[in-house]
Computed example of a mutant assay.
Amino acid sequence: MRKILLIFNGKSAANLLSFGCYIAGVVKGRLLGLFPEEIEYDESPRRIVTSTASQSGITDIGPAVETNHTNDIQADIRRFQQMCERKGIHASVHNGSRFTIADLADESRFADLIIVDATPRKGFLTESVHERIVKELVSAAECPVIIAPASFEPVEEVVFWYNRSASAAFAMKEFAYIFSFSDDIKATVALTLNDGDDDTGDTHAVREWLSRYYEYGDVVILKEHQEKTLFDYLLRKKKVLVVTGAHGRAALRRFFQHSQTDLQLKTLPFPLLITHH
């Protein structure tokens, strides 16, 4: 892997930087830091924040927000450069400051991976705006995307969500091709089935695939209410990275709709890698 886009658009910049350096070390990649003042999709987040504040009776948010945000960005850039130099990671800073989702999609065309923060920067983007931007980016990106959690520990297990779709199988293979974790990493395929489905053929094929790439591999069968059962299983895990395929916005939205735990992007407890097929 040669090019990783690290997009600093959240409040956990120090954690995102640590996670980005960790992934760059695993895949021997180069980091390109993007420090946007604003990311626009169909409506400017800045205008949404201003409109929301106005409706709440707040009339003076401009200069203070702008100044604080600019200072935060400059501090993040210095921290990025210093840590990458200290860890011996090749890194550079993108000279852009304002991006649309289309701009970021163009940047991703010849990138190998995007890493983006799950949590918005306090006082700049509302949680709903930030979450919408991240989901739009995942849908538009032309390379795999990792949504980094608010905090993380070094990965000890990779969990592949396999629902027997071509997209899920592609995600598994794509991950195995580009990520070179240590030999003691555990790989688990969470095979989600509907009641009455025969899992014999899938289980055999998946175990055979696992044996070619991982020293420690396992298959777990999950049935009934696939997304709900999957999250019940994942929330008991520690130090995992979850890999899934996605067919655009609708698939990602279903992934986060979990009636019992109400899991949202801001509370994501593990890194989530999403690929397109």
Rank of each mutant, 00 (worst) to 15 (best):
K3T: 09
I4D: 09
F8A: 12
F8D: 04
N9K: 09
A13T: 03
A13L: 00
A13H: 10
L16G: 03
Y22D: 05
Y22L: 02
L32V: 14
L34C: 12
F35L: 02
I39K: 12
I39D: 08
E40V: 11
D42P: 00
D42V: 04
S44E: 00
R47T: 02
S51Q: 06
T52Y: 05
Q55M: 06
I58C: 08
I61H: 14
G62L: 14
A64W: 14
A64D: 15
V65E: 15
N68E: 14
N68D: 14
D72W: 11
A75G: 08
I77E: 07
I77Y: 10
R79E: 01
C84N: 06
C84A: 06
G88Q: 13
V93D: 09
V93M: 04
N95M: 02
G96C: 02
D103W: 01
L104A: 06
L104D: 05
A105R: 11
D106S: 10
D106G: 07
E107S: 06
R109N: 00
R109C: 00
F110L: 02
F110P: 00
D112I: 03
L113I: 03
I114E: 09
D117G: 11
P120T: 01
G123A: 04
L125E: 13
S128C: 00
V129P: 04
I133S: 05
E136H: 11
V138F: 01
A141P: 06
P144A: 07
P144S: 07
S151A: 05
F152M: 05
F152Q: 12
P154L: 02
V158N: 08
V158K: 11
W161A: 15
Y162R: 10
S167E: 13
F170D: 08
A171L: 03
K173P: 01
E174T: 11
F175D: 03
F181I: 06
K186E: 05
V189Y: 06
A190S: 06
G196N: 11
G196A: 07
D198S: 15
D199E: 05
T200V: 03
G201Q: 10
G201K: 14
D202E: 10
D202K: 07
T203C: 00
V206A: 02
W209N: 03
L210W: 11
G217Y: 09
I221M: 01
K223C: 02
K223D: 02
Q226C: 09
E227N: 15
E227A: 13
K228R: 14
K228S: 12
T229W: 05
Y233S: 06
K238I: 02
V242E: 02
V243T: 10
H247D: 12
H247Q: 11
Q257N: 10
Q257P: 00
S259R: 12
T261E: 01
L263C: 02
Q264R: 12
L268W: 09
P269S: 04
L273D: 12
L273S: 14
